[in-house]
């Protein structure tokens, strides 16, 4: 089939197939979608940053109320650091969100940059999130353990149990992040890299 035949065949489809759109329903859906999109962004920020900020007064209140040792309060800077890090990162990278109306190559480049950053974030979750929280948490548990050392084996066993739970939770959070990188983000990045490679300039083929 020569190019003109192809184009002629292509043209015939407008008389064969048609997209029936319920415009009113579509407009309702786009309005709903926009509201839900804004709500998703808002609640994601609340979940990631708000929880950490709400925890700070709760932490201070519990510390005073239960007369806990000073290491209890060392978690506060860690919470503020994690919340601040996420907030700054979100604001910096929200500005670089790809616009679907830009040329394909630019869109793929932006998507790839964003994906690469997301992978970096999750791969390094230990350094910017887990370690800053784990150190004060374990320091507090260590101090409590030291203060209760005279209470015998049952206290030591209870403390070991609590430390094991904390470590398990931290390991689980780390694992789930690495799982997302391996199974979701890395394949997507490879796909984007392949797409970008196919959009690079190439020399004319010899006929």
């Amino acid at each position: 089939m020569n190019p003109d035949d192809l184009r002629a065949t292509w043209k015939t489809q407008s008389s064969q197939t048609h997209l029936a759109i319920d415009t009113e329903l579509l407009l309702q859906e786009v309005r709903r979608n926009q509201r839900s999109f804004a709500a998703t962004i808002f609640w994601r920020d609340v979940r990631e940053v708000g929880v950490a900020l709400v925890l700070v007064p709760v932490w201070i209140f519990l510390g005073i109320r239960l007369s806990l040792p000073w290491t209890w309060y060392s978690i506060i800077p860690a919470l503020l650091w994690a919340a601040g890090f996420m907030l700054v990162d979100r604001r910096r990278h929200n500005r670089q969100t790809p616009d679907p109306g830009e040329p394909l190559r630019c869109h793929v480049e932006h998507s790839l940059a964003q994906m690469t950053h997301q992978i970096w974030l999750l791969k390094n979750v230990f350094w910017w999130y887990l370690l800053p929280l784990a150190v004060p948490m374990l320091a507090f548990l260590g101090q409590v353990g030291w203060n209760t050392r005279s209470k015998g084996w049952s206290a030591a066993f209870a403390m070991t149990f609590v430390v094991a739970i904390v470590v398990t939770v931290l390991v689980f959070v780390y694992w789930i992040n690495q799982y997302a990188v391996r199974n979701d983000l890395e394949p997507r990045r490879q796909e984007l890299q392949a797409l970008l490679a196919s959009l690079k300039d190439e020399p004319p083929a010899a006929d």
Binding site: T12, Q16, T17, A20, D22
Partner: peptide, 24 residues
């Protein structure tokens, strides 16, 4: 909110339309 609809093939040109549909 939307559906892909195949328009009915009818009339004297139906055979040709079927061929075109298959080609597409």
């Amino acid at each position: 909110i939307l559906a892909v609809e195949d328009l009915p093939v009818a009339g004297p040109d139906s055979a040709r339309q079927m061929v075109e549909r298959e080609a597409v």
